[in-house]
Write a protein that binds this DNA or RNA. Structure first.
Lengths: 183, 183, 183, 183
DNA sequence: GATGAATGAGAGTTCATTCAT
DNA sequence: CATGAATGAACTCTCATTCAT
């Protein structure tokens, strides 16, 4: 029955990403169970508290994000890879990075767990690698730091608005990240 | 006793801005009452539902924000005024514009009330005026739209991070908003 | 200023009869104040608890009822007077005697106050006089007791239904109260 | 655990009948839970709003009442069956039919739900059948309508008073319902 | 291991009552 | 005396968490 349990765990996590991604921390554990097609007890067997479920959801998402970033970064020219990945992280994962912000609302507020921080570091590292390669290729301004780029990604990820407006805003930011003229 | 009531109303609003600004919609009305130093009944006398309290808090904040923007915009040279105001809106009002996003989480989800939308329009108008004047002075890129600029402000306002990182990110964005070189 | 106070007291009582008559004990004291056109403080100055306001309302109503009964009873022939009064008490005072029942719902449930019982006794006495005179005139069955008649009045007073149905039911009861054939 | 749930549901309904029968709509759901020996959450799991609990209580009571009426009505001679059932409905179910009246007090006041109305119709139908049979047997006055009889039952059901007085009042009413002499 | 009924602390809201003005 | 703002206990309802089956 090990595979059943594993399958249930995954369905719960997928359901949790939907629910928390849409309704934030206000999404209920029962809603997660319903969408996963399991009983509420099963959710709590795998994730003993709501907080842990939220953390696992975030870790899962960040891990997928980092993998995508690495895969994209391997392809082709450095500057284009950086910009493509920047765009994808912002547009392709709507409201998901926002999950991280939810942890801060969480009652006990003991800050993100180690596992979450570790996963976030992996994402940051992926961004860093893309950024560094872009800068070395002279396609991204040299004085931009990973922290700044990562903050911009997070900020835009959470922004709500029409797609065309968001795309325009990303264009502006990427222009700001292009190499400076004189010096 | 009218002045007492008015004073209490203001204290409640100030407390609500703190509480909702920090904990989002998850912040409790009781916490607001506690911070305001009044009984729970007093909060509900002034704002019959939590939703209305949230809306009043947002309107108050947006109104102050618009006033600030207009005051700043009147001073001096157009491009500098635009950039100064952009910076102030992002840095000076941490996590406050985020309040607007909270309305979407609100249970009934009937969208923001008219008063809130009206207040948001006032802010957008203030931004628009600054943007237009900056563009006419040739200090801001001509193809940037208000919606894009407003989205960037909102996105950065909600971003969490160290002040120095945030400042750097704003620099990047303002660079992206500077006039394009050759067409 | 004594007359002002007296006038306010009366307006409050009249408002209370409306409110409690319609909404029962669920009617709020503030609603009473609003209808009376006075502040909530004024209501509590005259009637220190809701319970006392309710009792005073009932006493007022019962007193008026008894007066009406006595006035009616003085007119004309005994049997007709009895029947006319019976009808009027049932139809003319819809939902008002029901107020008495509300006392039993009242939280502390220490039973009706002495004043209320005294007023109820006056009503019962008025009914008794009418009944006795009707019986002495041979127009009402001799074996009917005051308690039974009074219970029938109270029961029908509280009954909800269309007027024509209520009238028919009263006819049936009055037939039951007419002298028995072979007795 | 299905049988436990069913048992709890029934205990809650029985407790609700007690509480609402005695204190009306003012009776609290917490009191119901206490009497049923379950947690407050259990009550709300079975009946998501107080209103629904009230309705279910009424439906249950009316259903039992109709069943009793039909069972009694099948036995023996028509006039006796009518009178026996009339007595039982009035005496055997003290303060319970009154529950129906409570719905009108209920906040939203959207009137009784369909289920409640349907159950009430069943009771009325049972009364109608007994009445018609009694009239056909010449044991009940021919001009009495179901509505009138049903109103009398409801009125007397709600009446408070000593048993012996109530019995006497019922005797009077049943006399009023006996066939008219020279009609 | 899975299930879902039961639990009860906590949140929003109401309202009788008090008291400063 | 009148007023109405302030108070807080109590109520309805939600939801994370537990546990018997």
């Amino acid at each position: 029955m090990r595979s059943d349990a594993r399958a249930n765990r995954d369905r719960v996590l997928a359901a949790a990403e939907e629910v928390f991604g849409k309704s934030g921390n206000a999404g209920s554990t029962e809603e997660v169970a319903r969408r996963a097609g399991v009983g509420i007890g099963t959710v709590f067997r795998h994730f003993p508290t709501k907080r842990l479920l939220l953390e696992a959801t975030i870790v899962r998402h960040l891990t997928l994000l980092a993998e995508t970033a690495r895969a994209r970064g391997a392809d082709g020219e450095a500057g284009a890879a950086f910009r493509r990945t920047f765009r994808e992280m912002v547009s392709g994962a709507p409201a998901k990075l926002a999950l991280v912000a939810l942890l801060e609302e969480s009652a006990d507020s003991t800050g993100p767990a180690h596992e979450v921080e570790a996963a976030a570091v992996v994402v940051r590292d992926a961004v860093e690698e893309l950024l560094t390669r872009g800068q070395q290729a002279g396609e991204v301004r040299a004085d931009a730091t990973v922290d700044e780029v990562y903050l911009l990604i997070r900020a835009l990820t959470n922004a709500r608005g029409e797609q065309v407006v968001l795309d325009g805003a990303v264009d502006i930011v990427l222009d700001g990240l292009s190499p400076r003229r004189s010096g």
